[in-house]
Design a protein around this nucleic acid. Structure first.
Lengths: 356, 356
DNA sequence: ATGAAAGCGCTAACAG
DNA sequence: CTGTTAGCGCTTTCAT
């Protein structure tokens, strides 16, 4: 039987196009070359301690000679473990804070023997169902979501799939499974209080439609109103709403519009550090002194925040911490260990520099 | 037989842990619910025109009711088509130009029914072999590399796998398979000539160790020397070399160092737009007028380039074009259509704004 | 320490 | 238009 199959394969292979010909090195080929059974070859690669030194050497040699690369689809199909973690991010095109967390997480997961598969989730929530199904179709061992998943159908599919899920970068009492995040609303509140303490009396914000940025804005607006330091725009319930991704240009145009309706604004909370940088530049060009005339605070503590002048006051989230906690929760859960606390709040920190 | 298998599966399922229980909806379950054979169910989903309207309706209903999500490992194993394209990028953590191309490409590929799998290749070339093998292990239908692949072993595995490959963002006569890119060396040459035309006479560069940035630097240095406009640093063969990722801070420190050794420098070619922005800010803080006293040119035409003051003169590469060409070459090749020209040069364009 | 048999969930190929 | 049979490449399970 074995020889028949082998022959038929060889003849098929050689009659095919050149490009596709080499793709067919299987574990069976390796095993034959090494003079052992397929099962032994498999063990030599995945549970090396279970085979004799001699056998292992033979197999590894055959692997090297043949250029064998395992087919993880076959392995995953049979073993139900794909050693793959799916990471869903809103977008990779913008330099957003969560990309740093992704980077940290990737290192840990790769270390632990998992491969990460990044998917762009987009900013269009209506596509969540489709995108998620295409992820589940690959049967990852775990899924990390940037943001919450609110679509009922998506939540149901996720739960039904039995795949461990970590939602990140936000806070809720009702995660699908596990959560590592913080409250964006609270960030906004904290900035409003900070401005108040600093003696600012007419504050404004450059917000965005993206859910997390909007949450920060709402916290900021609510608290500013409560403290009586809301500028005209905040009082009227309006802000300068921008579409993601947030760019430097939005910071400039946002400040222009803020000053138009309310020339005495003395503090701006910008959607992200990139937007804040634009605000900073526009202020300087208009001869406003920062922070004396105008305080500018951003969000994210991007790489450049400490390298601009005046250095940017901002909100820092420990991305490495998010990455680390997410990775370890996931790995534990995959190995059957329930997390001590499935909802983890990593908090945030106001980094006071020079701009406000 | 069918009913026996069904029974055993049901009993197994119900005795398992809750979390894993729902994951097991298979096409067999759907077929049974719809009262058709598995094959017909498969056709109803993948080749709907081959089944009757009635059957299709039955199957789709069963899919919706059961929450079935196909297992693409099984499909790929059998059909040899995974409908997955692997994209290897150096890093996602830095706002680099190629991320914009990735975004454009993703849209086209998703449109065409492919899923993209992003892998971080890192800046450490010695890991190429391992990273590549882990990609091949997933048997993508196509691979897109950001940059060239120079490791002999990796090239061999890639060729042997028979997977169509497009190398991007660089130029060479010897691609593994297909190539969509441009010459970074030529970019450097073009900037040197541009500075020369503008009457600049002591030029310098803030370079980086990353291969493509280094290539731009070499083109720039060679041509500047030839034209006799090289500042002292370039004449001495030195530059201000930074490690990736290139940051704003490097632009500031780079200019400081450039002026220290050669106070009369009148033009700087920076590694990326982010670095150029730093150069710009440092120049302004030192009271240097840009572009009168100092010309600053970047690379990448990042989103903010046209929104800073003075607006940044830079080099633009049409990322959408790269994305589009790469995607279509790949899709064609997968469908058996050989590209008219496997090496495509997309060129670049100097975008003249205000900074130089 | 090693091997043989069975089967993961799906689709190619062929038959009706 | 629909069904049957076989098997993708690997690992689980059981036997030796």
């Amino acid at each position: 039987m074995t020889s028949i199959r082998k022959d038929s394969k060889v003849s098929k292979t050689t009659t095919r196009l050149g490009r596709r010909s080499g793709g067919g090195v299987t574990l069976t080929d390796v095993a034959r070359q090494a003079g052992v059974s397929v099962m032994t070859a498999s063990r030599a690669l995945n549970q090396p301690h279970l085979v004799s030194d001699d056998t292992r050497k033979q197999v590894l040699e055959a692997v090297a000679n043949s250029g064998y690369v395992p087919n993880l689809h076959a392995a995953g199909l049979r073993s139900k473990r794909t050693r793959m973690i799916a990471l869903m991010v809103p977008s990779i095109a913008s330099g957003s804070a969560f990309l740093l967390a992704v980077h940290a997480m990737t290192e840990i997961l790769v270390e632990a023997g998992y491969q990460v598969m990044l998917s762009e989730r987009g900013y269009d929530r209506s596509r969540d169902d489709m995108v998620l199904d295409s992820v589940i179709a690959r049967r990852p061992d775990g899924i990390v979501l940037t943001g919450l998943m609110e679509s009922p159908r998506a939540r149901q599919h996720l739960a039904a799939s039995g795949i461990p899920v970590v939602e990140t970068w936000e806070m809720t009492d009702t995660p699908i499974d596990m959560l590592v995040g913080f409250s964006h609303y609270d960030v906004g509140v904290a900035i409003a209080r900070y401005f108040h303490e600093q003696g600012r009396r007419r504050v404004a914000s450059i917000a965005a439609t993206e859910a997390r940025t909007a949450a920060r804005f709402h916290g900021f607006a609510d608290e500013a109103l409560r403290l009586g330091i809301a500028g005209r725009h905040l009082q009227e319930g309006s802000s300068f709403v921008i579409e993601p991704p947030s760019q430097l240009g939005h910071g400039r145009s946002g400040l222009v519009r803020a000053l138009e309706g309310d020339p005495d604004v003395d503090a701006i909370f910008s959607a992200t550090d990139m937007v804040a940088l634009g605000t900073l530049m526009e202020a300087q060009l208009r001869g406003l002194r920062v922070p004396e005339d105008l305080a500018v605070v951003g969000f994210g503590d991007f790489d450049f925040a400490c390298n601009v002048t005046p250095a940017l006051t901002t909100v820092r989230v420990d991305h490495e911490d998010i990455g680390r906690r997410t990775a370890s929760m996931l790995i534990n859960r995959i190995e059957g260990i329930a997390p001590d606390n499935p909802i983890q709040d990593v908090g945030f920190r106001l980094v006071r520099r020079e701009s406000g």
